[in-house]
Design a protein around this nucleic acid. Structure first.
Lengths: 147, 147
DNA sequence: AGCTAGGGTTCGGAATCCGAACCCAAGGGG
DNA sequence: CCCCTTGGGTTCGGATTCCGAACCCTAGCT
């Protein structure tokens, strides 16, 4: 595996990485997947400053990952909900969690469990070949720089 | 899906998120998986300032994700290589890339392709139930807060 | 009329980031 | 033997970003 240099603007790892590798963004998404939708709830759940929260929610809306939607409580309020694009980040969060479970688990164990709603099974994340379905590690993959 | 508050220090998503959600860290790991090993090569490939690079490499070594190892070129040099813990982050990067391919792909297409070394197939990332093997989305998963 | 709650905006100081310059050890060339 | 180059860093000051605290605005409630 030789040293490869790729154009960042064209790399489909670095583009999302620039977005998600911003402080708070991953935590915000975790909260969103846990069901948090309102400004105040994000703020109290994550202990983030209000100004930074405003900004992060804004960029996620701009990016089309969250959608800001008015709804009626006792009066008009707003909620931030995952779009399809946002929901599609689930594998990223699950991969992160699986790694966290294995390598950074606190002695007391994780703070929540996830199970398949219909059969109760645990959740796995797998990297596999689209053709032969073999499970793959980094060593099984060949990188071909284009252009 | 109700609003759930969890302790960050116990959440196995937020622990890795705090680490990877630091500027440059994800890009550094991408480079590492592309085969970059030497300080100078990281620096020229990523256009990161030397001081920040030193610091990031340092925390990744501390965290046991990279290992700093001397080797003989014409004289003693050092290289940074992924440990087992680091290699195990591959699904995270692949999930990120798959999402990037779908949602942020530049018009010209991605800058490199990945294929299964032995059969040439494409690379997929799947979230699946450990019991029944069904492929899962966020909606199929139940969250159970513990403690 | 005044109080409260949700959802923000606006500061100024504190922590990070960054580029450029500097340091150091070991070959190599003259 | 002296100077130059290369890899791998460290140091420094200025430019950004982050953050907490304080403030703002709108509707409903009492």
């Amino acid at each position: 595996m030789a040293h490869v240099k790729v154009a960042d603007e064209l790399c489909t790892v670095s583009l999302p990485a620039a977005l998600l590798g911003e402080r708070w963004t991953l935590l915000l998404l975790r909260q969103a997947f846990l069901g948090t939708r309102r400004f105040e709830d994000f703020q109290s759940a994550m202990d983030i400053s209000r100004s930074v929260l405003t900004e992060r929610l804004g960029t996620l809306v701009e990016e089309g990952i969250l959608r800001r939607e008015a709804y009626k409580d006792v009066r008009t309020r707003y909620e931030y909900r995952l779009t399809e694009k946002g929901l599609d980040l689930y594998p990223v969060l699950m991969a992160l969690r699986k790694w966290g479970d294995r390598w950074m688990a606190p002695a007391e164990g994780p703070s929540f469990d996830l199970h398949h709603r219909s059969c109760g099974g645990g959740i796995g994340v797998h990297v596999a070949c689209d053709e032969c379905s073999a499970e793959l590690t980094a060593r099984d993959v060949r990188v071909t720089p284009l252009r």
